[in-house]
């Protein structure tokens, strides 16, 4: 188990059919990410980094090649198997937070838990703990519209951890935040990484990328540099 990387991509391609032509977004990506790494995924728009993130997050599947997660081939799972594996293994953080507007901060934090086998009482305790970890215990009953952008993203960070995932994928997590708030969020992500979780951040922003110990630059559907 220790010898297996958490994530391994082997010659992964992804192409879309647009009319008559196949448009290849990923042209053969191979990489391995060990458990506990903090990785920044960078690249210009249209480089294929978003598609790569979707494949890593089991929201999309490679056209060819192989994706191994925790040593297991997950390239061609059924939709329900993908859903189950996302629920157990992966936490997502998005640029626009994506909190459900009509439920409280606490309910937003435990939302991914609803689809897990964990009993509801246990989920509530854990959601409270996580809100405390991001410093929002006193905002548990607030609706997202009553929270600032930075607070919303902190709720989203707490939410990503409710099912105790090994992998956290953050897509431009600071894209809508000012620099002070961005620093708060990145420090929280660093803390999450320090708990032993693997964190992969997609970002344009150099300051954000600087938190990562490893940077992977994607360009034109290929890994241009790694290290």
């Amino acid at each position: 188990m220790a010898a297996e990387p958490l994530v391994r991509l082997i010659d992964v391609t992804r192409s879309y059919r647009l009319g008559e032509v196949d448009y290849q977004v990923l042209k053969g990506v191979s990489l391995a990410i060990e458990g506990g790494e903090f990785v920044a995924l960078q690249g210009p728009s249209g480089s294929g980094k978003s598609t790569l993130l979707h494949i890593l997050g089991l929201l999309d599947q490679p056209t060819s090649g192989r994706y191994e997660l925790e040593g297991r081939d997950v390239s061609h799972l059924s939709d329900d198997e993908q859903s189950g594996l996302r629920n157990r293994t992966i936490g997502f953080v998005f640029q626009s937070f994506y909190l459900v507007p009509y439920i409280t901060a606490l309910d937003n934090v435990l939302l991914p838990g609803l689809y897990s086998p964990t009993p509801t009482g246990r989920l509530k305790e854990r959601a409270q703990e996580l809100l405390a970890q991001v410093g929002l215990s006193d905002r548990a009953t607030f609706k997202p519209s009553q929270l600032s952008g930075g607070q919303q993203q902190r709720v989203a960070l707490a939410r990503s951890l409710i099912n105790d995932p090994r992998l956290v994928l953050a897509d431009e997590p600071t894209g809508q935040l000012d620099s002070t708030t961005s620093t708060e969020i990145m420090n929280l992500l660093k803390a999450i990484n320090a708990q032993g979780r693997t964190v992969i951040v997609v970002t344009h922003d150099e300051a954000t990328a600087a938190y990562a110990r490893r940077r992977i630059l994607v360009s034109d559907g290929l890994v241009a540099s790694d290290g």
């Binding site: 329900d80 859903s83 689809y115």
Partner: peptide
């Protein structure tokens, strides 16, 4: 969001 976090269709 619910789908990403593991809700099945």
């Amino acid at each position: 969001l619910r789908r990403a976090y593991g809700a099945t269709s």
